[in-house]
Write a protein that binds this DNA or RNA. Structure first.
Lengths: 205, 205
DNA sequence: ACCTGAACACCGTTCAAGT
DNA sequence: ACCTGAACACCGTTCAAGT
């Protein structure tokens, strides 16, 4: 038994540990409750300790974002497919509370590389687009996926809080087609864009 | 001269006055600097006074959002056009600092009615889509416009701060087509979606 | 009807100092 | 190398009380 008694010898935390803690705080409290103090509490550490591992909160959030979108398996993983890649990205975002918002801010600040984007570019090139058109197509899809999912996840939150009246939806067309789920709506919008990309390939030939 | 001396007799503020103040604070400080205290200072009032006019900050932000997107003139205003309406919405958002982010949050919380959405639905119907498809098309366009503009405006902010290295762009294709401006990229992505909508009209016939 | 003054329970970030 | 303790300059929101 050494001088520090039988207890653990003061465990040092690594960068991944901090990201782990942040992710579990996010899961429990959402992005509104994701404060540096709560992350520090989760690690049994003072807030200031976090600033040894990360220069600021945004950098920590970027690391969280990177973990969320890391290795989005296309399932098939080989042949690049626009629809499959976009859907896989959406599933990744949906898998984490407020995932779209977290990723959106890191992305906009240029702190995150989105692996899915390159796969979308490849898929667009394979479909026959020019280099420039393929980049535009990839960005359009990324904006759509993040925008749609962001909106969907914020509405989930609003529904829990009961803040917004649920009828004020972006698409009050629930009346016209009351059977449509968010998944169906997402797929329908995605099909629209993919179809546009396909005709751009034909046109640019 | 009455009891309160020659000065103004303690000016009462109206709801629109509060929105005015919020918009000028937003213009000067951006969304990160848009605090209830700064808005109160702008009005020469205590913070707590704001809560007589609005129940909370989000409600005030929703009023600001509504003002931003009110009466987006399509220019022609009569024949509903997908491209013109989407472009007019983008111009509205760009006209206000952090406009896309402010509108995005109000929209997601169900606190804002976007007049442009109905015009997009009308345009899609005129193009020959079914009711349900027209709603999906409108939402897809709204997500694209807000997502693209949000990203663009956050990058403006990052550029001023110097926080993000400017090379980490969503579209590093600046290499492939170095002449393309955000406006060109926006128009190109928009054309992709509109083309997809057009073919949906043909397919659904 | 509209506003003040003061408080409550939080924030992100910095920094000297410890081990 | 990694963390503590304490502070700084903020937040949104509430509420009794004034006029």
């Amino acid at each position: 038994m050494n001088a520090a008694s039988a207890d653990q010898p003061a465990p040092r935390r690594s960068k991944p540990d901090v990201v782990d803690a942040a992710m579990s705080v996010l899961a429990e409290n959402g992005i509104a409750g994701l404060s540096m103090r709560r992350i520090a509490d989760e690690l049994d550490v003072q807030v200031s300790a976090l600033y040894w591992h990360f220069p600021n909160k945004q950098a920590l959030l970027a690391a969280v974002s990177a973990r969320m979108v890391a290795g989005e398996s296309d399932a098939e993983s080989d042949a690049p497919d626009l629809t499959a890649t976009a859907t896989a990205l959406r599933d990744r975002l949906l898998a984490h509370r407020d995932g779209a918002e977290v990723v959106s801010s890191s992305l906009a600040l240029g702190l995150l590389d989105l692996p899915a984007r390159q796969r979308l570019v490849d898929a667009a090139l394979a479909a026959g687009l020019t280099d420039a058109a393929a980049e535009v197509a990839a960005d359009t899809l990324v904006h759509y996926v993040i925008g749609f999912t962001f909106h969907e996840q914020q509405r989930m939150h609003a529904a829990v809080i009961g803040a917004a009246d649920a009828s004020v939806d972006l698409s009050p067309a629930r009346l016209a087609s009351p059977g449509a789920s968010p998944d169906d709506d997402f797929a329908a919008g995605l099909a629209l864009i993919v179809s546009g990309i396909r005709s751009a390939a034909v046109a640019g030939r």
